[in-house]
Simulated scan of single mutants.
Amino acid sequence: MAERIPTPTEIKRWRQYLADERAEAAVYRDLASRREGEERAILLALAQAEGRHEQHWLKLLGPHAEPPLRASTRNRFLAAMARRFGSVFVLALAQRSESRSPYATDADATDAMAADESIHEEVIRGLATRGRIRLSGSFRAAVFGANDGLVSNLSLVVGMAATGVSSQVVLFSGIAGLLAGALSMGAGEFVSMRSQRELLDASQPTQITLTAAPSLDLANNELVLVYRARGMSLEAAEHRAAERLGQFTCDCDPSLSLQPENFEKADEHESLGTAWGAAASSFCFFASGAIIPILPFLFGMTGINALLLACALVGATLMGTGAVVGLLSGASPLGRGLRQLAIGLGAAAATYLLGLVFGTVVG
């Protein structure tokens, strides 16, 4: 059978695949160098898998593999981020990169390679989950605070401007909105998260069963009800109660014996974030968002030019925050950015129209 001679188009595509596989392997090795234990081993295993893919393209290319081609812009950016940060942000980018693998539709890639890329996405998703959980509390408050500041203060500024008041009144209204909103956001986030933490703490089991057990009526063993309320089966609850009372007369499976009741509290940094951290994030990010719509007025601009510049600045910031959320969630940065932009400017446009109506009625 004659050896297959690749076409120039195939050679170009294979060389790009080869460069990208090498770049992805380097990213995983860089990430592994910043981790220990199981995570390090997983990342190194991913790098080895990319190395197997690299060998596939080298075999197909033969002498056409040289000189080496540069990786795609996306993979070069990912490699640069991995070398400098090695954080959940990079893992989110790597997850998105794996999800866009072309191997599933490329006849020159093996089925095993396509399957590898799909599995790699899930592996990276799992590794990124821990970092996302740690970020979820304060990051949620920060994103919510920044976008609320941007949208609410822009709406306030354009609404006031539409009524025909002076630029000075618009400026002072924006400053008042910034301070009131930031203080409200910070206080509200603190109370919300502290209340949620208190609710969770109230649900944690206590050790009262240990002190009350000796005085319980043995004929009506209500200790069983305690364990059933905690989710145990009747059989497991009876066995645990017998252990606590020093009796082992129940006909139970010995494997039901449980360890002492050490109920560990959830790590508040990983589940909710701290109330103070969330409050501070809400205050600062609301203020940082709310100041953007009034920047043109702070620098002396007036009229429609100030409003247009304020809308442009807010629009660019909304696109940026939406893109960051998209990257961290493994979704399209452009799609998330456009969604944020549409929501923010839509709210401002509605307020502007209401301001026009109000100004006309009052005038």
Rank of each mutant, 00 (worst) to 15 (best):
A45Q: 10
D20T: 00
R194H: 09
K12L: 08
W57F: 15
G126V: 00
T163Y: 06
D106T: 11
I175E: 08
G51A: 06
G355A: 09
F286Y: 15
A350K: 07
A242F: 01
Q259C: 07
R230H: 12
P254G: 07
S118A: 14
F286K: 00
K265A: 08
L46Y: 09
N221A: 06
A350M: 15
A180W: 09
R40N: 10
L295S: 02
L308C: 02
E24H: 05
T360A: 11
L338N: 04
R35S: 07
L341H: 04
T206P: 12
N220Q: 14
A49C: 06
T274F: 12
A47C: 03
L69S: 13
A25L: 02
R52N: 14
L200D: 11
L179C: 06
L46R: 01
R339Q: 10
P8T: 08
L78Q: 00
T211G: 01
G289D: 09
S195C: 07
V123M: 03
D251L: 12
A219D: 15
G330C: 01
A128C: 08
E121N: 13
L69E: 15
G322A: 00
R84K: 11
L44V: 03
S271L: 07
T163H: 09
A26L: 04
G346M: 06
R84P: 00
I124P: 13
T274G: 15
I11L: 12
A275V: 14
S152Y: 10
I119S: 04
A213F: 12
G149S: 04
T317A: 02
R74H: 11
E38L: 02
P205L: 03
Q259L: 13
G159H: 10
F297H: 01
T317L: 02
V314R: 07
F285W: 05
Q204K: 15
E3G: 10
E198Y: 08
S118V: 02
A94K: 00
A41Q: 12
S136L: 13
L298G: 03
A236K: 11
M301T: 03
A323S: 03
Q168E: 15
L245F: 01
A290L: 05
G289S: 05
I5T: 14
A187V: 15
S99H: 07
S281G: 15
P214R: 09
R70S: 12
S203H: 14
V27Q: 12
V151F: 10
R83E: 06
E122V: 11
L210V: 08
R339P: 07
A287V: 02
T9M: 07
P260I: 06
N262T: 05
E270A: 06
L256Q: 09
S233C: 06
V357C: 10
T129V: 11
L91T: 03
D148A: 13
L150H: 02
R140C: 08
G51S: 06
I119R: 11
R244Y: 05
V170G: 02
A141M: 10
E24G: 01
D116G: 06
G303K: 05
A219Y: 09
P293A: 02
D267E: 04
T9D: 13
A237W: 09
L127D: 08
A187T: 13
L156R: 07
S166C: 05
G181F: 06
H269D: 15
D116W: 03
V224L: 00
A79Q: 15
T163C: 10
A287M: 12
A331H: 01
R34T: 04
L93C: 08
H53Q: 14
L345H: 04
A266L: 11
P68Q: 08
M1F: 01
S166E: 02
E24W: 07
I208C: 09
T105W: 08
